[in-house]
Design a protein around this nucleic acid. Structure first.
Lengths: 185, 185, 185, 185
DNA sequence: TAGTAAGCGAGACGGTACGTCGCGTCTTGAG
DNA sequence: CTCAAGACGCGACGTACCGTCTCGCTTACTA
């Protein structure tokens, strides 16, 4: 018995698929499996060889792009770090293309359990970044609710669209949360 | 010119459609137009006579149920009123059926602009309730961010599913927000 | 209980589908379901509402066209009638387009039981025409084998392509079969 | 220039492929390349190293089996030889497995030009056998049509399935053809 | 005896057609 | 003019199969 036979999976194909999915999302075009496959010069079966569903592809495409977005470097104080991180996050997420992408992701996740798993992982990763910043200054405080308030406002506004998600909103929220955390410690 | 000719619209049909939509959402079954029409013993055209799209139906089904859920009567203090309202909201929204329905609503709203409009209206109405409570005690404070924090945490947790949405969470959040508002006034 | 509800099937759609299928066959283009649907301005589902499979569509398209092809009018003798009928059949079936269509039909029938049923019906109908001609002059003779010889030579040559299917071949075969029938009576 | 380098081709693989193809045909299962390769424990590339297309494989599988089927030894008369040969051919071809295989062959040939070429060769070989028998007794007669009548009836009945292909049918046909040839000489 | 070229089983790849599903519209006869 | 039923045009979905390609291994001739 051999350990492995047959042609190896082609990582270039996987990358092309993710790139195509990201492009379509960014351009606001309909994110069809056929469109992804066509743009990536890939057969549809190849997509299903790498992901269990359409939603999972789309979500992974976003996750990759988002992971290196908000700054985590320290500015010298809890207030400064929080403000930098939250404001950067809000600024990025507030652009029309990015917001549209996030909405698309949730839409996929709500219809596809695989996509939901990837979304859970993605959001957990984002929360973790925020935990690390808070922990740096207030290691003993319970930050669960504060973190959810930050991302809650972000997602809620993006999904409903009743209020802006921008630098100013981020700064205001960061200041409020910082005060709340100081009071709790 | 006649004032009106022909058969009158059947309100029983409308009610049956809303009931069918609610049932499907609560059961977690795929909410297709055909399924709604079939379960309600109604022609698809009848649905489109009352609503502009599938999503709008689903949302109205929910809106009706949600509108008279959380208490608005006063308990004697900002802290008490907030706690009662938020805790009741969280308790109701945290039940599996209700949470599933809310997820279904967002899913519809993200794919259908009519549904999005109804969701915007629905959430605006919910926020208004909370504004009124705050205004009762702190008429001059800017409560926009505080309100979004409450509903942000609620929706974010329901959509991602990483933390509980229950009475305790509601009470903790209400206390935090109340303190924040007191500090701002 | 009503006898029937809902919109009636659209015979124009059925006709358009058959026409599109016949056109594609005659043009030698690939007979795809999508191509048929597109050319007929019809949804694919509509095709499947009328026929159980692709092959059945194609076959029925041919059957319609073939049914009124060979003459059945009498010339005054068995020999004359047979020669007229067989020669006309061979001449028509021998044209490249028609032959290609017949080959396509068999190809469908061999992969699809519904199409096979239609082919069986079609060929039975063709044989019946020949029976009627023979019966006109020799009512008591068993013509089964003779009829199969005529159509056997036709299909065999069309499928294999080793010999011509034309007027001359038809006349020669008709004369042979006529003699055989006279001898048997 | 070297005469040859590298590993030799494996005749066992070729045989396994032919056997697998024959089995699938006889069992009436869908004859896909993947199925043949899987059953023969062979890579798909190996099949394409020996044959130009799927159809060619299937046809060669049959040709081998069919070539030594019907007797060509003489019985002492045209009538006897014809009857022996045709009856044996009909008996063999009439078995369900063999008939299924023949149908499969035509199906392949109609979709694949390589297969069509092999089918043409195969049927030419079968016709040649019959020519030889006729030539033995009537060297000067034109037997083209007679031969096509025999194989025409055989293939026509197998493809359409409206009449039996058995010993009796073969005998009756052989007698008819023999008489026809005698008359023509 | 090492080098090298071809064959091997396995299976991923790009592509194309399939048959199904859902949407929102249109059509029918009854109320 | 509404109602239930359901056919319609459209277009995305996920699967199947083709014939090609790539992988690590095996075999056999050549140097």
């Amino acid at each position: 018995m051999r350990a492995h036979t047959g042609r190896r999976r082609n990582d270039a194909a996987k990358a092309a698929i993710l790139a195509a999915a990201t492009d379509l999302l960014a351009e606001g075009q309909p994110v069809t499996l056929g469109a992804i496959a066509g743009r990536a010069q890939v057969g549809k079966q190849t997509i299903y060889r790498w992901w269990p569903s359409k939603g999972a592809v789309v979500l992974e495409a976003m996750t990759e792009r988002a992971r290196s977005l908000a700054p985590t470097a320290s500015t010298g104080s809890l207030e400064g770090d929080l403000e930098a991180f939250v404001a950067a996050t809000f600024t990025a997420a507030g652009t029309p293309e990015y917001a549209a992408t996030l909405r698309g992701i949730v839409s996929e996740a709500l219809r596809d359990e695989h996509a939901a798993a990837v979304l859970a992982e993605f959001t957990a990763d984002r929360r973790e970044q925020l935990y690390l910043i808070i922990e740096r200054w207030l290691p003993d405080v319970d930050a669960d609710l504060a973190v959810d308030q930050v991302y809650g406002v972000l997602w809620y506004r993006i999904l409903i669209g009743h209020a802006t998600v921008d630098d100013a909103a981020g700064r205001q929220l960061a200041a409020t949360i910082a005060a709340q955390l100081r009071a709790a410690s």
